[in-house]
């Protein structure tokens, strides 16, 4: 599985999450996507919760580069040095790990390792990991800048896309959420509205 794409390198670590710098500017894993990083005998799994792109040199304020003829991608073509002046980073919340081919959906005993690689997960991996949805509860306690409802619904949509039966998956996820949020109906409702299958809308 490790043949899938390396997308970043870890630059900041704590028990519940890590941050990584993207291998390439603007090639950021999707919000709510599942990523993996090796840690000793384990593979840690994490959900992308936040991303930024900013100057490499923190003191430098970017200025607009476009003009009437050049915009978007053309700006980069015209100024190849730009690729070096900026970097993309993302934060991921750890939601479980695999050890000896077995998935656990809770926090690993040890955090991720600095400078280790982060890989995007394949659909197959996502399917395998998301068979058990109890990891969703770990997402409710993140104090990221994004609303939990947005985050949770994004994860569920990601996993649903990877699943064999999207509708069944959404229903299963919905029921897991209903159990987790049985005292907080308004929140549940907001998430359900975000993951509702298209044809049901």
């Amino acid at each position: 599985m490790s043949e899938n794409l390396k997308i970043g390198e870890i630059i900041d670590v704590n028990t519940t999450s890590f941050s990584a710098e993207c291998v390439k500017l603007n090639e950021i894993p999707s919000f709510g996507g599942l990523v993996r990083t090796p840690e000793g005998d384990r593979d840690l799994y994490a959900v992308v919760t936040y991303a930024t792109t900013s100057s490499v040199d923190a003191g430098r304020h970017p200025v607009a580069r476009g003009n009437d003829d050049e915009e978007n991608e053309m700006i980069f073509k015209a100024n190849p040095q730009l690729e070096k002046l900026f970097r993309s980073e993302f934060t991921a919340v750890v939601v479980g790990y695999k050890e000896k081919d077995r998935f656990s959906h809770h926090l690993p005993p040890k955090p991720a390792r600095i400078h280790y690689s982060v890989y995007d997960c394949s659909d197959e991996e996502i399917r395998a990991f998301s068979e058990d949805l109890s990891f969703l509860s770990l997402l409710f306690n993140t104090n990221e800048n994004v609303s939990t409802e947005e985050l949770v619904s994004a994860v569920i949509r990601t996993c649903a896309e990877a699943s064999d039966d999207k509708e069944a998956f959404l229903e299963k996820a919905g029921r897991e959420l209903a159990r987790l949020l049985n005292r907080d109906y308004m929140r549940l409702k907001m998430i359900l509205e975000r993951i509702r299958p298209q044809e049901d809308r």
Partner: peptide
Amino acid sequence: DDFSARIL
């Protein structure tokens, strides 16, 4: 919203 109703 059948979906939510079914889930709840």
